[in-house]
Amino acid sequence: MELNYETTSAFAKSFGLLYLIALSVAITLYAYWPSLGPRFEKAANSVLDDEDGPCR
């Protein structure tokens, strides 16, 4: 196998595509994992809990 631009480019494109698909699946699984729901809910509500009054 000769290592030229076309071979390297094809490998990089296919590896990059598979890498991004795997990363997207992993992030989606992390976001929807049932045991992490309370942590995300706490983080979402913590922004609203710290408000004492108007911004200024």
Rank of each mutant, 00 (worst) to 15 (best):
A12N: 07
F15V: 09
Y5Q: 10
P38C: 10
T7C: 09
E6N: 12
T28Y: 09
A44V: 02
I21V: 15
Y30I: 01
A12Y: 01
Y19V: 04
F11K: 13
P38N: 09
R56F: 09
A10H: 10
L48I: 03
Y5K: 12
F11L: 15
F11T: 07
I21Y: 12
N45V: 00
C55K: 04
A22C: 08
D49M: 07
P34G: 05
T28I: 01
S35I: 00
A10Q: 14
T28G: 14
A22I: 02
K13C: 13
E51V: 09
C55N: 06
L23G: 14
E51T: 04
S46N: 13
P38Q: 11
T7V: 14
L17G: 15
G16S: 06
K42G: 06
E51M: 08
F40W: 14
E41A: 14
E2H: 02
L36D: 12
E41D: 15
F15Y: 11
T8C: 10
L17F: 08
L48H: 07
G16F: 01
L20F: 10
I21N: 12
L23Y: 04
S24L: 05
L20C: 08
E51C: 06
L17S: 10
G37T: 04
R39E: 15
A26M: 10
F40K: 14
L3E: 08
A31V: 01
S9E: 15
G37Y: 00
G53I: 00
G16M: 07
L3I: 07
A10L: 11
I21H: 11
V25E: 13
T28K: 03
I21Q: 13
Y32I: 05
P34E: 08
S14Q: 14
T8E: 14
F15N: 09
L36S: 11
S35H: 09
K42P: 01
Y19M: 10
N45S: 09
A43G: 03
A10G: 06
R39G: 06
L29G: 07
E41P: 02
L48A: 15
R39I: 04
Y19L: 12
Y32N: 13
L18R: 04
A10S: 12
S14R: 03
P54E: 10
P54L: 08
A43V: 00
L18S: 11
R39M: 11
F11Y: 12
L17Q: 05
D50C: 06
R56L: 11
L20S: 09
P34Q: 03
N45Q: 08
I27S: 14
F11N: 15
D50G: 09
Y30M: 06
P34R: 02
T8H: 05
S9W: 08
L17M: 09
S35E: 12
T7H: 07
G37Q: 12
W33R: 12
D49N: 05
S9K: 13
A44F: 08
V25L: 15
A44L: 10
N4D: 15
